[in-house]
Design a binder for these strands. Structure first.
Lengths: 195, 195
DNA sequence: CGGTTTCCATACGCCACCGTATGGTTCTGA
DNA sequence: TCAGAACCATACGGTGGCGTATGGAAACCG
C-alpha cells in the first residue's frame, strides 16, 4: 500500500548539483542548502551527505559545474566569426541579449565575495577578459591597450547585468529602444578599434 | 566599585544604524543582525527591539541612511564645475577612484535582489542615471540619447565596482597603469560627446 | 544466492539568529 | 521629588539550517 508518489529514482551527484543550480538561480547562494534541496528532490539529507562531505563541497561542485558549462559555451559560440571586430561585436551583443541562464550568473556575481565563490569567479573573469583582450589584440593594438579596452568592455557587461537584475525599470522598455541602446553601447565600446 | 569598562552611554537609533553600516560594509547584509550588533555595541537585544520593531526595520533604516548620506554627496561634490563635459569626466573619475565607503556600496549592490534592499537601490540608481543624463543633455544631445549614454556610463561604473570587489587581480596593478586605464575608460565613455 | 558496497531514511544534537515577556534602571519635567 | 516615560538586561521559546550516527534497503558481483 506504500505507493511512491514520485518514481523514487536513486540520486547521484549530478542530481544534486542540478537542483543546486536551479536553486542558485532562484534564491541565490543561500538557497543552496541541503535540507531544502532534499525536499525539492524528494529525498532526505542522508542522500546529500552520502555524495558530499558537507554543504561547502556541494556548493563548490555546483559552481565548478556552472563554470565548466557556461564559460566556454559563450566563447565557442562566436569562434566561427573570422573578422575580429565583428566577432567582438557579436560577442558583446550575444552576451548582453542572452538572458537564458542569466539568473545563475547574476547569483554568482552577487555572491562574489563569498569565500567559496570568489576563486571560481576569479578564474572565470580572468578567462573572459583574456579572451576579449585577445580579440582586441588581433585588431593590432598593443597587449596593454588591448587589455585595457577588454576591461572597459567587460566592466560594462557586468554593470549592465547588474542593472538588469536590480532595476530593469531604468533600462529602455520597448524592444526597439533596447536595440538602439545596445547598438549604441557596442558602438561606444568599440570606438577607435576600427578605422 | 562597579566601574564601567566602557563608558556605558545610552544608545539611540543612530548608534544602531551606524553600527549596522559598519557591519554592512564588513560582512554584507547578513551581518546586519541584531545579536551580533548588540555584542559590538556592548548592549543587548533589548535595546535594539526598543528602537526598532524588528530586524527588517533596522535594515531599512540603515539603508535609508546610506542612501541619504552618499547619493547626494557625490553629486554635490561636482556641482561646482560649470563645464558639462569636464563635470562628467570629473564625476566618473571621482566615483571610480573613491574607495572610501566603497565597501558599503558594494555590499548594497551585492544584496540588490533582497526585498529590503531592492527599492532603495532602485531609487538611488534612477537618481544617479538621471543626473548623468542631465549632464549629457547639457552637451546638446536629445534626452533619449543622453539617457542611453548615461546608462552605458553607469553600467561601466557598476561593473568596475564589481571587478574591484571580486577580483582586483585583473585590474592594472601599478598606480601609473591605473591612471592610464581610468583615463582610457573616461575617454571611451565620453566618445563623441565633445567635438 | 549470499556477501559487499552503494545508497538513503530516521532520528538526534548543535548553533545562530529572531522575536517576546517581564521586570529593572535611568532620565525628565511638572 | 517622584511619576511616568524611555531605555535596556535577562531569560525564554521558536525556526531553520548543519552535521552525525545508525540501521536498513537496493544494487552489484562473485
Amino acid at each position: 500500500m506504500k505507493r511512491d508518489v514520485a518514481p523514487r529514482k536513486r540520486l547521484g551527484r549530478q542530481d544534486w548539483t542540478a537542483a543546486a543550480l536551479v536553486a542558485l538561480g532562484e534564491g541565490g547562494l543561500r538557497a543552496v542548502a541541503i535540507e531544502p534541496l532534499a525536499v525539492r528532490l524528494g529525498a532526505t539529507k542522508g542522500s546529500a551527505y552520502h555524495h558530499f562531505p558537507n554543504r561547502d563541497a556541494l556548493v563548490v561542485a555546483t559552481l565548478e559545474r556552472w563554470a565548466a558549462e557556461h564559460t566556454e559555451a559563450v566563447i565557442s559560440a562566436v569562434r566561427d566569426e573570422p573578422d575580429p571586430l565583428r566577432r567582438l561585436r557579436l560577442l558583446i551583443t550575444k552576451v548582453i541579449t542572452e538572458d537564458e541562464d542569466a539568473s545563475i550568473e547574476l547569483a554568482v556575481l552577487a555572491a562574489g565575495d563569498d569565500p567559496l565563490v570568489a576563486p571560481v569567479l576569479r578564474r572565470v573573469t580572468e578567462r573572459r577578459v583574456d579572451y576579449i583582450a585577445e580579440i582586441v589584440g588581433e585588431l593590432g593594438f598593443s597587449p596593454a591597450k588591448a587589455r585595457r579596452r577588454a576591461l572597459v568592455a567587460y566592466s560594462t557587461y557586468l554593470g549592465h547585468a547588474q542593472l538588469v537584475r536590480m532595476s530593469p525599470g531604468v533600462l529602455p522598455e520597448t524592444l526597439a529602444a533596447q536595440r538602439v541602446y545596445l547598438d549604441e553601447m557596442v558602438e561606444v565600446l568599440s570606438t577607435g578599434l576600427d578605422g
